[in-house]
Write a protein that binds this DNA or RNA. Structure first.
Length: 781
DNA sequence: GAGTTTGAAACT
DNA sequence: CAGTTTCAAACTC
């Protein structure tokens, strides 16, 4: 986007330098690879529906990810590391890693040189990519981490690419390596699919998969495939296509790529003497598969066929699944699942999947990471409106049984992940992976697979259950030390003892997610196995209060005052939908939902002694020291207490100031996220902001710590048929709905307060802001 | 980690 | 709808 221009120029300049360099020429001569056309590349990236959220994306981030891989490919060629050819797979991996690492996390220019020096195509654009990649190199590790499916898993396993990979080198094809490989494979597939390659059939259903076609197609579309990913793909393809052998595959690839100059990447990575690597790799994987037919296959209830090909495929799927599967399903997702299930039976999975994908694409991926850098600590919430989905289900009255197929679950998971896009756009990778893998899901269902909750949860869950089961250590890592008990960036964890997690007291339940392992709840019913109960209870609560699961904080249009709704001139552009009722906290503590949500109190609040730093009920804004000087508006005036309050306020203010994102509540685009909750680093418990349908949907789950909230009624009135549209998020604004809660509290539909610009609002406050559901015109540094 | 405080949710 | 109770998070020590 806007950010690219400068870089581009710079890159070009750099490139020129390179090209003028004797060294460059020399290298260039050595390399048969031709420059890649930028246009193609661009197109490729843009066309990656999945991972590239709209425009927004563009993103350097998404791009960077791919590019990085891309880059890695370049570095892979053994040309520069001849020794590798004879090494075993692990060794190779290690080397690759090393290279990748050097290119990823280090110096840019050097890296670029290195890449160029390796005979990698150095077309202007290519260089550009490389360069770009370098720019975001620091993000890669994390990206990779997520790519591997689990944050928890991340740091240790995949988080730091260099480290993880290196670790791998020392292990015999471990789980880690395994997962990693699969992730890549799936990623590639996802990319290919995204390209709109109709003939790519991951399942290989109906006939031998058209790998040749796939390759050609990939080449034709200028799909960038990194060596490793490709290897995985090739491997998979081999496994799937009994008629094709690896030896045949590589030549094919070469041939295919040779027809397209742009395919240099592939050629470079695969053709350049990597066949051996691939074979090794494949055999390694095969060996693993053969010797370790276990866990996932069993867990997923996947088939253990006698057909090696199938077996492998299953394994791959399950592994990937393993990384992502678990629990990203929330209640709503359960519904989705069901719906999907129904749809699948009727129209075929492809349609449904694509729908989901589209929804995801349009609603969530976008924002991905505009502010990734700055918001890294924030949990971006990108999500699909689960409630809406649930609604669909309800309307359809279709309820599939617990026997939901794994595919469904998987899809749900994928969606959730997508939705959740937890922390960074980098999660998108995960999404993409999961989605692609979903296609391959083994139809044999596994009830054991839990629906996912919010992305974070899912990830956390995975980490906890999938990867950490045997490793308390990892588990601990997953918890991220500083995280307060309840949430891990988007992960909710409750501690309910009496509510069975079926009341709004339960944060998980209120957020529309299932409780997960990290929860300390007792007698919890908020689990997939009690899905019916959960849904029922949920319905009951909604019948009482239609907006019970709606986001508590509604953010109005950035540029449009909350006229009518909030007569007060409070600075905040967002308001708690119902207002608080604080008596003693002066709205300066998280007891106050307004404060917790990072919004000012409004006329609808019944609080006493409001001193909300985000905006007082009386309309004054006490920000910064200002607040201290402001008159003490209300009752509380008791010395010590007052001091305590002031202290708190000051502290909060300081926190605010610390947050680069939050400069002031008054700011229209006030960052929702980095709230002043620094005291414990915990984001607001449950706030979601919604505004645009798209934003709304997008924001949910994933995002936050609080995850998905579900919003309900307003969308529930939407006919099933329209759901897709809703998911699309673009659509027309939903009619403003104002309702009264049973108890007379004012409840207005989030939409009522929605602003004119749909693009900006989104899920939880924190997230949306940082992650616009649509390409934001405003550059985020 | 236990106990207290707080205010939302639930109940009457 | 108001008052009360229950509940679990937030907070304090």
């Amino acid at each position: 986007m806007d950010m690219d221009t400068p870089e581009r120029n710079q890159i070009n300049t750099t490139l020129s330098k390179f090209e003028d360099s004797p060294v460059f020429n020399y290298i260039n001569n050595l390399s048969p690879i031709k420059p890649v056309k930028s246009a193609h590349i661009t197109q490729t990236f843009n066309s990656l529906t999945f991972s590239s959220p709209p425009s927004v994306f563009t993103s350097p981030h998404v791009a960077s990810l791919k590019e990085s891989r891309f880059l890695r490919l370049h570095s892979l060629p053994s040309a520069s590391k001849p020794k590798d050819s004879s090494e075993d797979v692990n060794k190779v991996y290690s080397n690759e890693v090393a290279l990748a690492d050097s290119s990823l996390s280090q110096h840019n220019s050097c890296e670029l040189h290195e890449s160029a020096g390796k005979g990698i195509s150095v077309g202007d654009d290519t260089v550009e990519l490389s360069n770009k990649q370098t720019k975001f190199s620091d993000e890669l590790p994390q990206a990779l981490q997520y790519n591997c499916g689990s944050p928890g898993y991340g740091p240790t396993l995949c988080g730091d690419e260099a480290n993880s990979l290196l670790e791998l080198s020392g292990e015999a094809v471990s789980d880690v390596a395994y997962v990693r490989e699969n992730c890549k494979t799936d990623s590639v597939e996802a990319e290919l699919h995204l390209q709109g390659t109709s003939h790519i059939d991951p399942k290989g259903e109906g006939s031998d998969c058209d790998w040749e076609g796939l390759i050609h197609n990939a080449a034709a579309n200028d799909v960038l495939i990194d060596a490793e990913a490709f290897k995985g793909l090739a491997f998979k393809g081999l496994m799937q296509c009994s008629s094709m052998r690896l030896s045949d595959f590589v030549p094919l690839l070469q041939q295919s790529t040779s027809h397209h100059d742009q395919k240099i990447h592939m050629v470079d990575s695969v053709a350049s003497g990597s066949e051996h690597e691939i074979e090794n790799h494949c055999s390694e994987l095969v060996a693993v598969t053969d010797t370790d037919p276990t866990q996932d296959s069993l867990a997923n209830g996947s088939l253990m066929t006698n057909n090696p090909n199938e077996k492998m495929d299953n394994e791959l799927v399950s592994v990937t699944h393993r990384g992502i599967r678990r629990r990203c399903l929330d209640f709503e997702m359960a519904s989705v699942r069901k719906k999907i299930s129904d749809d699948n039976s009727n129209t075929g999975s492809s349609t449904t999947q694509s729908e989901v994908r589209n929804a995801v694409n349009e609603n969530q991926l976008l924002p991905a990471k505009r502010n990734a850098d700055s918001q890294r600590c924030i949990l971006p919430g990108i999500g699909l409106h689960l409630n809406a989905l649930a609604t669909v289900k309800d309307h359809k009255g279709k309820q599939s049984e617990n026997a939901t197929s794994e595919r469904q679950l998987s899809l749900a998971n994928s969606t959730s992940l997508l939705l959740s896009a937890c922390q960074d756009h980098q999660h998108l990778s995960v999404v993409s992976v999961s989605v692609s893998s979903e296609r391959e899901l083994d139809p044999t269902s596994d009830n054991g697979v839990q629906p996912a909750e919010d992305c974070s949860q899912a990830l956390a869950y995975m980490a906890a259950e999938d990867f950490n089961q045997n490793s308390p250590k990892k588990k601990r890592q997953m918890k991220r030390k500083s995280e307060p008990v309840g949430e891990i960036e988007g992960c909710k964890r409750c501690n309910c003892k009496k509510s069975k997690c079926l009341k709004l007291y339960c944060e998980c339940f209120a957020a529309g997610v299932y409780c997960i392992e990290p929860c300390s709840c007792q007698e919890c019913f908020n689990k997939p196995i009690h899905e019916d109960t959960v849904l029922q209870t949920r319905k009951q609560i909604e019948s009482r209060n239609p907006l019970a699961f709606a986001p508590k904080v509604i953010r109005s249009a950035d540029s449009v005052p909350d006229v009518g709704i909030d007569p007060n001139k409070t600075p905040a552009s967002a308001r708690h939908k119902r207002g608080c009722n604080c008596k003693k906290s002066s709205c300066l503590k998280k007891y106050c939902e307004c404060y917790q949500g990072g919004v000012g109190c409004s006329i609808s609040c019944r609080c006493e002694g409001c001193k909300n730093a985000f905006g007082r009920k009386d309309g004054s804004a006490s920000i910064g020291i200002e607040g201290e000087t402001e008159e003490e508006t209300e009752t509380s005036d008791k010395g010590v207490e007052e001091k305590a309050i002031q202290k708190t306020e000051i502290q909060n203010i300081e926190d605010h100031q610390e947050s680069s994102l939050v400069s002031t509540p008054l700011r229209l685009s006030r960052p929702l996220l980095p709230m002043p909750f620094s005291s414990k680093g915990k984001p607001p418990r449950s706030f979601v902001t919604t505004i645009t349908s798209s934003g709304y949907f997008a924001s949910q789950k994933l995002a936050m710590p609080n995850s998905l909230w579900s919003q309900s009624k307003p969308f529930q009135t939407v006919p099933d048929d329209e759901m897709p549209e809703i998911l699309r998020g673009d659509s027309s604004p939903i009619a403003c709905i104002k309702t009264l809660s049973p108890n007379g509290k004012r409840i207005s539909s989030p939409n009522c307060e929605r602003g004119s610009s749909p693009a900006r609002r989104g899920g939880r406050k924190l997230i949306l802001q940082s992650i616009p559901s649509f390409p934001s015109l405003t550059p985020h540094p």
